[in-house]
Amino acid sequence: MNCRTALDELTAYLDGELDAATASAVRGHLRLCPACRTVAEDHAAIRDGLAELERPDPAPAVWAGVLARLGEAEIDDARRSRWARWFDRVRPHLLPAGLATAACAAAVLFMHLRSDDAGGAPAPSASTWAHDAPQGPAPSRREAAYGGGQRRELATQVPVEVAPPPAPRPTVDASAELAGEVARLEEVFRTTTAELLPLARAEQRGAAVQRFDRDVAALEAAVVRAPAGKARDQAWHALVSFLERSALGEAAARVAVNR
């Protein structure tokens, strides 16, 4: 992986969005390239700094006013006849309804933005605003405008979905990265072994095939038996080394050394 590719993938890497193989390649490049490492550290610092910024909350009075106006408009709507409501749409009295609608849209937008908050402190959910919210289903946003008495009835009339809480941001953990690196190296050994095995076996003739199979089985068993770490690595190297020499026909064509 070169610098350009690594920098292209950097943001996704820092956000934990890359697959394991690409993340490993980026990580490996960052280990080798001080310049890219510096860029990565800068990006990470900026990201962390942004996540820690506090989001300004509106004054409680503003929010209470929006909710109160919304509630009054809806109650008025409920009390009018159909004709009156139709008249309202064509008369200048439409203005208050328009205001209410705009206020409603603003309130919904505002709460939507709050619930999309992916960083710092969790955004207050709708139930946070219903001060006396009982056990059971969370009240809708519109319920919150009324308080306990009318809550149940309105909830059945105008269901409003509560936005799910934001998913936690994936955390990059050095321990997990180390384990991933070990797994990657094991995968290299496995791939190499799988590539070499047919090549090496094809070199064997007659009784040598059985001897070869026995040797491979013994070396594979040594890999399985070896505890993770240096012993396992050495067992893998022994297996791959044997297969490489066998693939080169080394067992059959050994040069006599005059010692």
């Binding site: 280990r31 490492r37 990059v172 953990d173 050095a174 180390l178």
Partner: peptide, 16 residues
């Protein structure tokens, strides 16, 4: 070795 990580996850390996 790295710490046990019980308190909270360690940072990315690139920074350690």
């Amino acid at each position: 070795a790295l710490g046990d990580g019980r308190e909270r996850p360690l940072a990315a390996l690139a920074g350690l």
